[in-house]
Write a protein that binds this DNA or RNA. Structure first.
Lengths: 242, 242
DNA sequence: CGCGTTATTGATTAGTCTCAATTCAGGTGG
DNA sequence: CCACCTGAATTGAGACTAATCAATAACGCG
């Protein structure tokens, strides 16, 4: 574990703990939903709340995997880098998602906050022990991991075989599904153009040009900033399907 | 389940069963290594051996996920397709790898044999029940799935951010690690150029040109057919690192 | 040995990246 | 409250990589 992460963990105070696990905002949707009340109490004994600033990295690719947790609030990215610094975002973490690599010795990806975020973290060793002694946790992890694997593989199709406009259309659809209310009103995208580019394996300019193309074709509106409104969802979906 | 798969399952005979699970060639390396002898016997009651020809598809993207199993012999691909037929291979299955999607209702990818292959298959429902009643299976699946997820995400970096030569170098390194003896002698690649291209998100021509480039640079030798010999592994690794 | 398939090589094109210049949005301080 | 300032986003022109189209060569198999 590096110094920065260390200080993050230390900075967590009992005082910041928002009640116990029983009152946790993601209790019903995170892996914790597999636990009994007694299990929740056991868990709250080994967990700590950590607040991270946008841009702060919780886990580093190549480091020892000694931290896992649940996202309570905010959005984080999971990313890989080439030797010379090119970055690919390989996953996003939203509230109630599980974070980190249980049962492994090395972190294969970095995890960095995109927005201010709150994470409930556990030391890997303590969590591994906990999951071994509480039924349902490993099964809940398995379900999530299988789902993540499906998602990652679907994204591989996008990265390997889709054109720029197809990629951008896919991302817009997915982001609006995942964060926004598609009521025709404008939604604020949670990602900058650079982050979208890092997810799509494109450059910022190509993402921007694709968005403009959609706007000129009447598929979306871009009222400025990161706001976006869907005008023709079906057409966008057709493009995204490839 | 489609007709082709159905007939495959039916075609499995008790007579083809090579002894019981106790004597299985991948017993020690597949998820079955988590089972007791009694567990193995239980498993052999619900499993069937299936032989597939190269090109035959065991599972179809979009179908109901009603078949899982272990690869005993051969190599299979996991792949996704766009609406208009572009293909991306998102994973390879080697002997002792687990195949299919447990605990899910829909197959997100197709699984197709690249070589003649032998697979030990289970009906999804029966396997799900089995894993729920035999300790260690879900945990073994979790370990494998986490590892697959790491591998998939690393591949996403390749697909999203690496150049053609970097991709090909990465694949050559990985294939030789996974199948071959790197003793300086020639190894036979298990993939055609088309399959390499589908794995790398490139065209067959670009793969071929990259290989020729490596040969001319003295990094590899291509004595014809699918044979390849490493001449300068370190240089190839440097290229693969990006 | 001849045929069909697979792989290589070449010429050209298309799509995306790169580099560069504006424009825009949002926050700060006067 | 507004002008300014900064980082983000857009737009444009040109360069480059990989795809496409096309032809030849090598391989594997009967």
């Amino acid at each position: 574990m590096n110094m920065e992460t260390m200080s993050l963990v230390k900075s967590a105070r009992e005082g910041e703990w928002p009640g116990r696990c029983r009152d946790c905002e993601v209790r019903g949707t995170s892996i914790c939903s597999s636990l009994s009340l007694a299990g929740l109490d056991d868990l709250s004994r080994i967990g700590r709340i950590v607040h991270v600033q946008p841009g702060q990295t919780l886990l580093w690719e190549g480091d020892e995997a000694d931290l896992v947790g649940n996202v309570l609030d905010g959005i984080l990215k999971i990313s890989n880098m080439t030797g010379d610094g090119r970055e690919q975002i390989v996953g996003l973490l939203f509230p109630s998602d599980f974070l980190g690599r249980p049962f492994g010795d090395m972190q294969q990806q970095s995890v960095t906050a995109l927005t201010a975020a709150t994470v409930c973290v556990f030391r890997r060793g303590a969590f591994d022990t906990f999951s071994g002694t509480h039924d349902g946790v490993e099964r809940a992890l398995l379900d999530r991991t299988l789902q993540e694997l499906d998602r990652a593989r679907r994204w591989m199709l996008l990265l390997g075989r889709m054109s720029a406009v197809e990629r951008v259309a896919s991302l817009v659809i997915e982001l609006i599904e995942r964060v926004g209310a598609p009521d025709g009103g404008a939604v604020i995208l949670p990602l900058s153009r650079q982050q979208m580019a890092d997810l799509l394996g494109l450059t910022i300019e190509t993402v921007s040009r694709s968005m403009t193309k959609f706007e000129r074709a009447g598929l979306i509106e871009l009222p400025g900033g990161r706001r976006i409104a869907l005008r023709d969802e079906q057409a966008l979906r057709r493009i995204a399907a490839g």
